[in-house]
Amino acid sequence: MAFQTLPKGGEGGDRPWWLVALVVIGLGIAIVIAVNDLYSQVFTIVAQGLFTTIFVTLVGFVLATALGLGIALLGMSDHVALRQTARFYIEVIRGVPILVLLFYIAFVGAPAIVGLYNLVISPLTAAGLAEPMLVRDFSLMWRAIIALMIGYSAFIAEIFRAGIQSVDKGQIEAAKSLGLNRYQRFRLVVLPQAVRVIFPPLSNDFVAMVKDSSLVSVLGVADITQMGKVYASGSFRFFETYSIVAYVYLILTIGLSLMLRALEKRMRQHGKAG
């Protein structure tokens, strides 16, 4: 059977007509929002939650990446107890849905953290030098960020593990022969090469967290979804409201995906040139 050779270009050699279609549809919706008072009002209200969505996503992802890297390094430790602890953490967290984890951190973890904090500062409280913390003082937004951090850290740890283990062991041995210590080998030899493997799945997780950040609305955090939910419940304009909510998320996720894909392509070209 003969197969036709696909021309060079986008995915599978095809031109990105899907992107052209999305841009045309997006511009059409933007025109509707600009000329229609109802859609304009909905967009204005929903956009008020944009900063919260971006803040929760960025902070949650940075913390999840740092924690995930730490868990990955523990999982590759020479000590069996550390490796087993890391594996236990990864398997447990990956098995719990993000929404369940969000509720657990918000209504179980947060009171426990507050109780531990009050226990630590109890000598200062007794001396009148500090005030005990109340559970309501623990921001719901930060409870949501901690839940996203923990939930995503397990998946990111596996991404880091796979990326680090993809580096040729011969290069690590060569670095050892040059007298580099473990930290220097990781920073100068392993990490620069592992980043090329790590970046694509890590960027996918970043885009996924933008969408999963909408779960914080169940705690009443004023993100895009929550602002839409509040407006729709009061106006009963469910179609218009959730159409705009979906439109805003699509702008965020598709725009972010395109930027990350371009960055990935540049990194790949730089790697080939090097």
Rank of each mutant, 00 (worst) to 15 (best):
A86G: 14
A154H: 09
V20Q: 11
Q165K: 10
G75W: 03
Q48F: 04
A157C: 07
F51G: 12
V32P: 00
I150T: 00
I156V: 11
F107G: 03
V218L: 03
Y89L: 08
K272R: 11
I25D: 03
F138P: 00
F160V: 01
L124G: 11
G12N: 08
S214I: 03
V108K: 09
K265P: 03
A222Y: 04
V42G: 01
V189H: 00
L250T: 11
L219V: 04
H270R: 15
K169R: 15
I90K: 03
N36C: 07
V59H: 02
E264M: 06
I113N: 01
G13L: 02
V197H: 01
L129D: 13
G128D: 13
V56S: 00
S243L: 13
S235T: 15
V62N: 09
I150V: 13
L219T: 05
V56C: 01
Q171G: 06
D168K: 10
A232C: 06
Y152F: 15
R182A: 15
R87K: 15
L256M: 10
R268M: 14
G10E: 09
V20L: 14
D14K: 14
L102Q: 01
L124T: 11
G75K: 10
K265G: 11
F155W: 10
I254G: 00
F55I: 10
L58I: 12
I254K: 05
L27I: 13
P132W: 04
I90A: 09
Q48N: 12
T5Y: 07
V189F: 00
P7K: 12
F238W: 09
V100A: 15
T85D: 04
G170R: 05
K8N: 15
V120T: 12
E11G: 06
V114T: 01
W17M: 07
P123A: 08
R261M: 13
T85E: 04
L67N: 03
Y242E: 09
H79Y: 14
Y242P: 05
S40Y: 04
L6Q: 14
L58P: 00
G163T: 01
L101W: 04
R268W: 08
Q4F: 13
T225F: 05
Y89T: 08
V197D: 01
A106E: 01
A47K: 12
L148Q: 02
L73N: 06
Q48D: 11
V216Q: 00
K211C: 04
I150D: 00
Q4C: 07
T44Y: 13
L99T: 12
F160Y: 05
R261I: 10
T53I: 04
G10D: 10
Q4A: 13
M141D: 08
Y231R: 02
D14H: 14
V167L: 04
I145V: 11
D137P: 06
F236D: 09
I224P: 00
E11V: 14
L191H: 03
I29Y: 06
L73C: 08
G274L: 12
V135T: 14
S257F: 04
H79G: 13
G163P: 00
A175R: 02
E131N: 15
S243I: 06
L140N: 11
